[in-house]
Design a protein around this nucleic acid. Structure first.
Lengths: 108, 108
DNA sequence: GTTTTATATAGTAAAATCACTATATTCATC
DNA sequence: GATGAATATAGTGATTTTACTATATAAAAC
């Protein structure tokens, strides 16, 4: 058992970077967090998160292209949901981090 | 126990986004992964990861400004190390993800 | 078939990031 | 104090993001 534990493969680093970079936007974090609750329509996100509709569609398109969300269409409505649980894991990491921040254990 | 589990605070979302976005670069992921092994000088990163020295310094500066790494100086050498374990957690999330990718459980 | 509703797409200017080259700074050594 | 090594900083085009406005599309309702 020599070397480090994570040891991410070179090919994967490209994909990982893309995912992290994509998640690195406040609106998109909010959307992903909202989607943890279950699938939502564009309109729900637009109204409940108070973002302009084209912005929401744009973010969803980017996240869809990069495998973060998927969607199904029903009539004129598009239901978006998280594509996999990796995303939730990352947010959970951040939540943990927030707790440590709040408790004063770390500071930024 | 109503609502979702993570529930990240609005103020924190800005910081989280910044961290994720900063980590969302292949070179920086490589550097962070390398630093998991312990503190390294700029020259070590430069040579062992085969990146140009100013590029390395630039990435380290950005990550330093955003609380991802810290450094100490010893003579003309600068030793950089990870600022906290959140970063490792996130990489571990990605490693897990990679395994699921490799096993064919998910696809991107 | 006209109007509404829901969503996507196009276009665009401003801002941020990126990769690279050149140079400055700082410490150590002779 | 001159030289070399290690690292930081400056400057710069090219590319990517971002936020926004306007418009297109497609299904629903009347």
């Amino acid at each position: 058992m020599v070397g480090n534990q994570t040891n991410i493969s070179p090919e994967f680093i490209q994909k990982a970077a893309r995912i992290l970079k994509t998640l690195g936007h406040p609106d998109r974090i909010k959307i992903v967090e909202f989607l943890e609750d279950g699938e939502k329509t564009v309109g729900q996100i637009h109204r409940e998160l108070d973002m302009q509709q084209p912005i929401v569609s744009q973010h969803l398109k980017v996240m869809n292209d990069r495998g973060i969300v998927t969607h199904r269409q029903e009539g004129t409505r598009y239901f978006y949901s998280l594509a996999n649980e990796l995303i939730v894991n990352i947010l959970n990491c951040l939540s943990e981090f927030q707790e440590k921040l709040n408790s004063g254990e770390w500071n930024f």
